[in-house]
Design a binder for these strands. Structure first.
Lengths: 248, 248
DNA sequence: AAATTTCTTTGACCCAGATCAAGTGCGCGA
DNA sequence: TCGCGCACTTGATCTGGGTCAAAGAAATTT
């Protein structure tokens, strides 16, 4: 595989940027030590495919930095993104050999990996890991269902606004800020990737972004750097109810 | 709540029709005994709402018989179904107080319920339950992602064919048959519910069903009873690749 | 059995978003 | 510095599925 690197210099779990959000979030220091023994890092460059759908997948892991996408493709080439993997998100499924989706790095990407067998064994012995993985999977399921509403019932404009709110929110939570008032962030996706996420064509994505810009909902510096002057306004455009949150 | 019944006569877990597929599938007989102590049954009539989105939910449970739907609704009334709950499917989320979705019985429904607190406590002590729940949640996540492709990229005709495929498959697996050749089953959903599942209008659903009938892909006895003379043909119409299955 | 309601079908027309087709502008290697 | 390629924008036109409207068919009530 072109340009992939297995980084050998060990990074301490204690210093890990995703320590408190990833699958290891609940682990005690002794559990962390055992994880540390079986973990290894892999890096991918923007555009590289991490795994192809159907391929054998002998590891699982967490996104440490960068962004990856999960996509499904039909024989005639129609593609739908089914997951957007941001730092701390988990990749792979314990108990299954192959990947059900294409996993692609859309930016430079660093993953913290575990060979599947040892990880599965560790999971058996470590309820903290199994429990955290269940929690994360339930969260992903909620996110997928939220996305089903977007795909099935929202207009193109609402879809774009919805995607922007998600990226803004996740960006804010990564930087420990609350999403409100003015926000600034980078779009980690091309227009085409956005289209694949939203079930649109890239032309429609481009037109709707231009429209949101024209209407003052967002402004752009370059093609990718977005300023949202009023986050509540963006939420309205997304068609979400004002609070937008599930109860704890 | 109108007409809901809490059935008191105890049904033995050993005789339960969903014994080998539900959240309790992996339990040993001693674990089953302890579950038996905290379980209770609830029945709902077709059309009844089990819980409203946002409502406090103090139980979790499994569908024993009948069918329920999970739906999300926007303020202006647009609704999207995000889950179709068939026998053995799990309802509710450990670790969350409220329901994120409306849960509605679309046929007469029997559920096997556990109060949330005791169930959560039991989960801590019983890895078999936690493990099975993780497995089921991962399956649901895969199903949700499959559905995202349907919603985002398939045509109306493909959407209908996809839904028929799913119902046929789950019906077959419930009756321990292999989905192939000729199949006969009942549609457990109204045209409107199908539309809500597929992100279509009920008129479009009706027209596409008529078209599939006209083209000999299916035939109908009454409005709800479907015969599929050639399952492979239906799969083709759904746009799925022929095998349609994920690797184990 | 007639009346009411609920579910479904079908027709006529319209529009949001797809498709087809030029361009624009920026970054990068030669 | 030029020119090539890629990501993006914008315009013109087309169309699948939505909307609006009417009416049949089943089930339920009176």
């Amino acid at each position: 595989m072109l340009n992939e690197k297995t980084v050998s210099h060990s990074v301490e779990c204690g210093d890990c940027p995703i320590r408190h959000r990833a699958v290891c979030a609940r682990c005690e220091s002794d559990e962390l030590e055992r994880l540390e023994e079986i973990k290894y890092y892999r890096s991918f460059e923007a555009g590289q495919t991490v795994i192809w759908s159907g391929d054998r997948m002998d590891f699982v892991g967490s996104v440490v930095s960068g962004i990856a996408t999960l996509t499904q493709t039909m024989e005639d080439g129609r593609t739908q993104m089914v997951g957007l993997l941001l730092p701390s998100d988990f990749v792979g499924r314990p108990g299954r050999d192959g990947s059900a989706y294409d996993v692609v790095a859309t930016t430079d990407l660093v993953m913290c990996c575990f060979r599947k067998k040892p990880f599965e064994a560790m999971m058996e012995r470590t309820p903290h890991i199994a429990h955290r993985l269940l929690e994360m999977t339930l969260d992903e399921l909620d996110a997928a269902r939220e996305w089903m509403l977007v795909l099935g019932r929202k207009t193109a404009r609402e879809k774009i606004a919805s995607l922007l709110t998600i990226i803004a929110r996740r960006d804010a939570s990564l930087n420990l800020r609350t999403p409100k008032g003015a926000m600034v962030f980078d779009l980690p996706l091309t227009r085409e990737a956005m289209a694949d996420y939203l079930g649109l064509t890239l032309e429609t994505v481009s037109r709707q972004i231009s429209a949101l810009k024209r209407d003052g909902v967002i402004s752009l510096q370059g093609k990718r750097h977005v300023t949202v002057p009023d986050f509540a306004r963006l939420l309205e455009e997304a068609g979400d109810d004002s609070d937008g949150g599930l109860l704890a």
